[in-house]
């Protein structure tokens, strides 16, 4: 007996579910190949021993340290400043909100060389703000702080917009119910809003971090070289993207591929670690139950 959900034998029409999954799988699969094949070409170009050698090269380590340190600070700043802004955009109505939205989106559409130039003009030691920053001990031009500033500028929008979406997705009736059950607005934020928006905020933070590490345009203007400053004792180096670009410019394609592979592996390890921690529910604020 033929199952009613299947087309009759001999039917020339493929079932709807076949069309519904085969076509997207072919199209989507092509894109996945486009993502993966260049990476495969990259990580197989330099032999593993060269990748290992680069991992112990002091020049690469200095560049990686500067990049990871700066991206960590930039991420912390993006979260500290961006999540509250995302909350305001999601939960409050105020005059000028559409304009604020445009301002938040602006760094995403601006060529990053232009962003670097703009930051340079504002923070160059010759400008009043730049001179003030130097006096405060935060010189920007060709320092770690410059790298952080560029990173925040080009990446924090992802944190803001993802947080906004995440806060917007929290059902207002859930928040009202929590308040009527005796929770103050602060307690509702800590026990309901943040846990529910947590995944969206983490997703935005990951995007921000990735964007910050992959930045190069702004660095070419503002932080091509990174000189020692308050947070970075030296030696003189450059952000990893600039370092790889320099190797490529000098014709060391194997070296550029090896350092790039190292960066890919670090990024992959971080992404897997976040997924693992998230999947196990090991972050205390991602859990809901305080009683067993």
């Amino acid at each position: 007996m033929t199952s009613p959900s299947r087309p009759p034998p001999g039917s020339r029409l493929p079932s709807r579910s076949a069309w519904g999954s085969v076509l997207p799988a072919i199209l989507g699969g092509s894109l996945i190949l486009l993502f993966l094949l260049p990476l495969l070409a990259l990580v197989t170009y330099a032999p593993p021993e060269e990748i290992l050698q680069e991992a112990t090269n002091p020049g690469v380590l200095a560049s990686l340290s500067v990049t990871l340190l700066a991206s960590g600070i930039a991420l912390a700043l993006s979260l500290a400043l961006g999540v509250p802004l995302g909350y305001l955009l999601a939960r409050r109505s105020f005059r000028g909100k559409p304009i604020l939205h445009s301002v938040v989106t602006l760094p995403l559409v601006l060529p990053h060389l232009v962003a670097g130039l703009a930051i340079l003009l504002l923070f160059s030691p010759a400008s009043p703000i730049g001179a003030f920053a130097v006096r405060l001990g935060f010189p920007v031009f060709e320092t770690l702080w410059g790298v952080v500033l560029v990173m925040v500028y080009v990446s924090a929008s992802y944190t803001v917009l993802s947080s906004e979406l995440a806060f917007r997705a929290v059902d207002a009736s859930v928040l009202e119910a929590a308040r009527s059950l005796g929770a103050t607005p602060g307690e509702v934020t800590a026990s309901v809003t943040l846990p529910l928006a947590f995944r969206g905020i983490v997703a935005g933070a990951l995007l921000s971090w990735s964007r910050a590490v992959s930045e190069i345009g702004g660095f070419l203007i503002l932080a091509y070289a990174v000189y020692p400053s308050s947070l970075y004792p030296g030696p003189v180096t450059s952000p990893i993207s600039v370092y790889i670009f320099n190797l490529y410019q000098l014709g060391d394609l194997k070296g550029a591929a090896a350092v790039s592979s190292l960066l890919v592996l670090i990024a992959l390890a971080l992404f897997l670690a976040v997924r693992f921690v998230e999947g196990r529910g090991a972050l205390p604020w991602a859990r809901g139950d305080l009683l067993p």
Binding site: D171, S173, V174, L175, E176, A177, A178, S180, V192, P195, L196, A286, R287, G288, D289, L290, L291
Partner: peptide, 17 residues
């Protein structure tokens, strides 16, 4: 004891939670 439309249950907590 306010039960809003849609009940407002906390989706990240169990029944006990």
């Amino acid at each position: 004891g306010y039960v809003p439309q849609g009940l407002g249950l906390l989706p990240h907590r169990t029944v006990l939670g």
